[in-house]
Amino acid sequence: MKITGIYFIYGLCVMFYFMMAWFFWRKGNDRLSRFVMLLMIVIGVECVKDLFLINDSLYSGRLMWSIMTAIDMVVVPLYAFVLIELCRPGWLTRRMMILHEAPFFVLPVLLIITGSEIFYGIEVGWAAIYGFGYAIWTLVVIPRYHKHLKEAFSYDENINLKWLRVILLSFFVILGLWIIDCLVINLNIESVYMLGSLIIWMFVCYFIYKHESVIDELREIPVVRSDETEEADNITGLNSKVNKLFFEDKVFLNPLLKLSDVADMAGTNRTYISQFFNRDNGASFYDYVNKLRVEYACELLKSSSETIETIALQSGFNSIATFHRVFSKFCGCTPAKYRACNVAR
């Protein structure tokens, strides 16, 4: 590929990454948006730097290539910070972030001072291990994250991470290309790596931009211990309040109902409510609420001539796709089939 081609690709990247930085700056002050904004700025600055430095003579100089690539690797932990904030919101501390970044500052400095390629090799190896490690960690943590969501939310649109699994598969391919790009000076490999990264980040930014912050809902609240008699009274009183909320007030018809909402209405905290659903009712908050929504929808399907889409909204579901999925899970058939069978009778 001619040098003008790589300039064009880098120009696209500069425009995209700085545009995304602006979007996430406008999105809000939550940590995830700030991490993505910072990541986009750093990648954008690196692309601008490359636009001025990339030329034919640079690619013929191995040491200069190594130094430039080693400096670029300061961005690697920022990728991990975004993954961590998605899967374990609020878990990262300032000290942890400094420790993560330290090797990616120290090794380039040693490379520049000594001119020894061994430091570059160490950094590339560590970045590869670090990247693969956090990608695998993310795949392991996602199911746990979804389990916590079901304990606190009655919906999962714009908060689940199902999309991230597909992105991570692409990430492994891009990481492999990046490793080759670090070791082999080749414009074609560089171009494929940059274009692949750009395409993946288009999808990632789209999903992250839609992603709602869940940190307040997933933060644990300490429980004040009580004796057995007091605890029994609390459970009895809580059971009465929850039954009234769900069976009389029908709070489950709120499509954005959260555990904290029920806790506030019942005059208690999220921990007690969570224990009530998981221990005393044997179901997560998500399953408990959606089972009631499905039962309500079944009655409407039998008695109403409204469309299935309308019934889904009336029953507390905020998307038709979720309605079909949850309905099939509890009833073993689609809403349309359920209506047809019951109308026939």
Rank of each mutant, 00 (worst) to 15 (best):
M1R: 00
T4E: 12
F8N: 02
V14T: 11
M19F: 14
W22P: 10
F23Y: 02
F24S: 01
G28Q: 14
D30V: 03
S33L: 01
S33T: 01
M40T: 01
D50W: 03
S60W: 01
L63T: 02
W65H: 07
I71V: 09
V82M: 05
L83Y: 11
P89N: 03
P89L: 02
P89K: 08
W91P: 03
L92V: 07
R95N: 09
I98C: 04
E101I: 04
A102M: 07
P103G: 06
I112K: 00
T114Y: 03
T114R: 08
F119R: 05
Y120S: 04
G125Y: 09
G125I: 06
A127E: 10
I129M: 01
Y130S: 05
G131A: 14
F132Q: 08
G133P: 08
V141Q: 03
I142P: 05
R144I: 02
L149Y: 00
E151C: 12
F153A: 12
N160M: 12
K162A: 13
L164E: 03
R165Y: 10
L169G: 00
L169R: 04
F171D: 10
G176K: 09
D181C: 00
V184N: 12
I185D: 04
I189A: 03
I189H: 08
E190K: 14
S191D: 06
Y193H: 13
G196F: 06
G196S: 06
S197N: 12
S197L: 13
L198T: 11
I199Q: 01
I200A: 11
M202H: 03
M202S: 00
V204G: 03
V204F: 08
C205Y: 03
H211Q: 11
E212F: 12
S213K: 14
V214P: 04
E217A: 13
L218P: 08
R219A: 15
R219Q: 15
R219N: 14
R225I: 15
E228M: 14
T236R: 13
V242S: 00
V251L: 08
F252T: 07
K258S: 06
L259S: 02
D261Q: 10
D261S: 04
A263G: 02
D264G: 09
M265I: 03
N269M: 10
R270G: 07
T271E: 06
I273P: 02
S274E: 15
S274M: 15
A283L: 15
F285D: 04
Y288N: 06
Y296L: 14
Y296S: 15
L300G: 08
T307A: 10
T310A: 12
I311F: 08
I311T: 05
Q314S: 15
F317V: 10
F317W: 07
T322M: 15
C331R: 08
G332Q: 09
C333A: 07
Y338E: 02
Y338K: 07
V343I: 13
A344Q: 10
